[in-house]
Write a protein that binds this DNA or RNA. Structure first.
Ligand SMILES: [Zn+2]
Ligand SMILES: [Zn+2]
Ligand SMILES: [Zn+2]
Ligand SMILES: [Zn+2]
Lengths: 155, 155
DNA sequence: ATGTAATTGAAAATACTTTTCAATTAGATT
DNA sequence: AATCTAATTGAAAAGTATTTTCAATTACAT
């Protein structure tokens, strides 16, 4: 289990949740995953380490992790069913269109934009949501010859 | 039927689609709607003008409108099942957390951010999504006394 | 070790969306 | 205006995703 998963375990405990075998398995999968994963994908991967895990528990654990801000839903045109780790603070996701790799980045300075929009519309702006899409270095290299060979695109 | 709906009708024809009674009803509802609407909500409202409309047709029409860029899915924490008008070009949505009102805005200047992230990560950035959330002027006034009376929050 | 409330998975229920297909219809052509 | 034809339609069925229910199990405080 990676260090990030251990850290997440502590956070769960801190928030009053029990650290069960099933939850550990789910944490380990998402913390280790470099791509966004749907509940079903988390289920499949986590069952390697914990075969008696139920899909219901995956949904419930993802819900808790979201609530704690450790995981965030990745929104795609196709659908919004997958999740990626989000390490707590304010950050956004950069997603590879080819392989699904997700990179987290911080330091979005949107204040000039937010202020302008607030002034024009009269809204009080309370939150923002930003996602970037592109091609990761590995997929760039691959597409020079034949595309996306280093990892399959998500279904 | 509003001017926007008529304009959308022309666009459909231009793209080779037939302008049916059912599609007109759907266009009219979304073009007139100030809030994001789920397929079921569009269905309910459009059936006032067109009682024999089927939900399947609503899904199919939303699909076409999305494809033409006239409508865009609104992504919320709770779910991503609703749509709002998007008038063609590059723009983003500002959404009221209380009543669901959606305002479109243009002129997001993210280039410094995009460049910085591209440099740090090695990604080629191809697209971005941005949504702002806040409280609209009407809901601000209302919450001074008791909240969201001018329109119900979405289910 | 014991107690207890939290957690679990299976099954059922609910929700959302797409597919299928025979009947209808928009709009082009006469 | 009447005719034609491919596009479009809605109902029903199928498919997929998610939540709820509930009795059995379990983490962990004591
Ligand atoms: Zn990639
Ligand atoms: Zn979404
Ligand atoms: Zn409002
Ligand atoms: Zn933009």
């Amino acid at each position: 289990m990676s260090t990030e998963a251990e850290e997440w375990g502590k956070q769960l405990r801190l928030a009053g949740y029990k650290l069960t075998r099933q939850r550990r398995a789910v944490l380990a999968v998402i913390a280790a995953g470099e791509t966004h994963l749907s509940p079903a994908e988390v289920y499949d991967q986590a069952r390697i380490a914990c075969p008696d895990l139920g899909l219901t528990t995956v949904y419930r654990t993802l819900e808790i992790l979201s609530e704690l801000g450790l995981v965030r839903r990745v929104h795609l045109e196709k659908g919004c069913h997958s999740f990626a780790s989000a390490s707590g603070g304010h950050s956004h996701h950069l997603i590879c269109n080819k392989c699904g790799e997700v990179i987290e980045f911080e330091g979005c300075d949107l204040s000039p934009l937010l202020e302008r929009v607030a002034q024009r519309t009269g809204f009080v702006i309370e939150a923002h949501w930003l996602e970037l899409f592109g091609t990761c270095p590995a997929c760039q290299r691959v597409s020079e010859n034949s595309p996306q060979r280093h990892q399959d695109t998500k279904k």
